[in-house]
Amino acid sequence: MSRPIKKIVKGSWQNEGNGARVLRSIGGSQLRNLDPFLMLDEFCVTWPAGFPDHPHRGFETVTYMISGATEHEDFVGHKGVIKVGDVQWMTAGRGVMHSEMPHGDKEAIGLQLWVNLKKTDKMVQPSYQELKDADIPKVTSEGVTVKIIAGETMGVKSQVRTLTPSYYFDISMEKGAHMKLPLPKGWTTFVYTLTGTVQFGPSAQVKEVEEHSTVVFEDGEMVEAQNKGDKPARFVLLSGQPIGEPVVQHGPFVMNTAEDIQATIKDYHNTTNGFERARKWKSRSGNRLLQSS
């Protein structure tokens, strides 16, 4: 059975970080949580705007670059540049302090997704999975190209390991293309449209969706889409196994109880229990911001 549309949400612009603006859909007032997904932002930033030194605990961040580049640096010495088509899948786990700033003078445009972790994984050691665009598998069939960032489809599997079972596909459709993509039943599924207009849903309940919209689906066996527009269309599709645990969020910390949050705030301020390196650390971009102010 093709999944019917449950809800369509247009994101709202809001301020984040250091002078940055993000178009937020999941995590906003219209779509607070979508288990296991906590947040989805489309960011468009140019130096000195960005996301300087800040902490995380209890979930994963997935950064996917649409254009431009982002420079990443953390308090254990991990650093690098995420360029167009690259993905960084960061497990914050028990604690990460990092910086995400535009690299170079061009505008950095991308998506950042927050994926929740179950209680037993919230305090794992931080880790990274970073893939260059050329290393992410792509499959094309009948005018539909699927870039498989996480999960598997059409007999092809991504090398990304997901603690919370998840699929993340970047899908492009030529004019007139039609797609039926099987997905696990019971998983939370949505798409975020990037360019063009796409019609989603079973034939009796088709709805046309504009750019920069989030489409949440009911349960079913597949997502059905068609491009009847006059230009190619592109969207990302995400599907994840619900965790079904309480979610208590305080800014960049996501735990199961208010007591867990209070303990996390204490750990961060006291630089203990995973945040020890935060005591003396300052990113290169953070120092650059201080010098320019």
Score class of each variant (00 low, 15 high):
residue 173 M to V: 01
residue 130 E to D: 13
residue 226 Q to A: 02
residue 215 V to I: 15
residue 282 K to P: 01
residue 284 R to V: 06
residue 5 I to E: 15
residue 193 T to P: 00
residue 125 Q to H: 11
residue 266 K to V: 10
residue 161 R to C: 01
residue 250 H to P: 01
residue 199 Q to F: 05
residue 81 V to G: 00
residue 45 V to Q: 03
residue 249 Q to P: 02
residue 104 G to Q: 02
residue 44 C to W: 04
residue 147 K to L: 04
residue 199 Q to H: 06
residue 122 K to D: 12
residue 198 V to N: 09
residue 25 S to R: 10
residue 188 T to K: 13
residue 102 P to A: 07
residue 229 G to P: 00
residue 234 R to A: 03
residue 265 I to S: 10
residue 288 R to M: 04
residue 224 E to D: 12
residue 268 Y to M: 05
residue 212 H to Q: 12
residue 30 Q to C: 09
residue 180 K to G: 01
residue 23 L to Y: 13
residue 176 G to M: 03
residue 61 T to H: 06
residue 59 F to Q: 02
residue 26 I to V: 15
residue 23 L to I: 06
residue 228 K to R: 06
residue 94 R to A: 08
residue 156 V to T: 15
residue 117 L to Y: 14
residue 114 W to P: 04
residue 245 E to I: 12
residue 248 V to A: 07
residue 270 N to C: 03
residue 153 T to D: 07
residue 133 D to E: 10
residue 16 E to P: 01
residue 43 F to R: 04
residue 198 V to C: 11
residue 55 P to W: 14
residue 271 T to K: 13
residue 287 N to W: 00
residue 214 T to A: 07
residue 183 L to W: 07
residue 134 A to N: 08
residue 101 M to R: 07
residue 54 H to G: 02
residue 207 K to P: 06
residue 142 E to R: 12
residue 217 F to P: 03
residue 99 S to L: 00
residue 293 S to V: 10
residue 110 G to Y: 05
residue 144 V to W: 12
residue 68 G to H: 01
residue 49 A to Y: 01
residue 237 L to A: 14
residue 285 S to Y: 07
residue 87 V to R: 00
